[in-house]
């Protein structure tokens, strides 16, 4: 094995072990084209069919749906040096078309909550190339970023279609959860529609876990929001 080939794809940062989370939106999207391309490929490997998941890089049919528009907002973690996508989530305001209303409405017993301060989180993806020992940390950083983005944008609640086995971890991280309907089996996994409210405890506990007390969000020049 070549020297260094075993090493993590995440370069340890000089000032700790924090990968910043970028807010990608319509205004700064061109700055992130390489990362977004890799994100759609990683999403295909994560959410796609088993055949597509076996492929790598350009061989993969990118996972892009009607909610991936030019003005969609993503929270994105990437390796600055290689422009490689590491982890990301998609944020959609519920005042516009989003997955829970359009695709998964059957998971809700009552009307899907929609308001300016309720956004949907979907397509949470950690690149399958990220070593297992780094994945949990990237997910925790994404959770911090979602909470910080909520504070920044005045978002009080997030809705999401969530695998039920992740619910204890999310609640333990300080996210208050309210089920919107009973869980159902989708693609072999038990998933449920939930409304989450990030609490100050959520931020504190996630930051404790990473031994980090600063914001993980990076506010790039040229962003619209």
């Amino acid at each position: 094995m070549a020297p260094g080939a075993f090493g993590s794809i995440i370069s340890p940062a000089k000032a700790g072990y924090l990968i910043v989370v970028h807010i990608v939106d319509a205004a700064n999207r061109p700055l992130f084209y390489p990362e977004l391309d890799r994100m759609h490929c990683d999403r295909a490997r994560t959410f796609g069919g088993s055949d597509r998941c076996k492929s790598h890089g350009a061989d993969v049919i990118p996972d892009i749906d009607s909610f991936d528009a030019a003005d969609t907002i993503y929270l994105l973690e990437s390796d600055r040096r290689t422009r490689r996508h590491l982890a990301s989530i998609r944020l959609l305001p519920t005042t516009r078309p989003h997955m829970l209303t359009t695709v998964y409405a059957h998971l809700c017993e009552a009307a899907v909550p929609r308001d300016a301060d309720i956004w949907e989180v979907s397509r949470c993806c950690v690149s399958p190339d990220v070593p297992l020992q780094d994945q949990s940390r990237l997910r925790t950083q994404l959770r911090i970023a979602i909470a910080e983005f909520g504070v920044f944008q005045g978002i009080r609640h997030y809705i999401s279609v969530t695998p039920i086995h992740l619910l204890p971890e999310l609640m333990a991280s300080g996210w208050d959860a309210k089920p919107l309907g009973l869980p159902q089996m989708i693609a072999g996994a038990s998933v449920g529609a939930l409304l989450f409210t990030p609490t100050s405890r959520a931020l504190r506990e996630a930051r404790d876990r990473l031994a980090c007390q600063m914001s993980v969000l990076e506010f790039s020049a040229g962003r619209a929001t």
Binding site: F6, G7, S8, S11, D134, R209, L210, A211
Partner: peptide, 18 residues
Amino acid sequence: ERVVTPALTSRQLDCVVL
């Protein structure tokens, strides 16, 4: 007494794996 999980750097984790 809240337990704060110590964070290891990526390189430390690489060494611990080995």
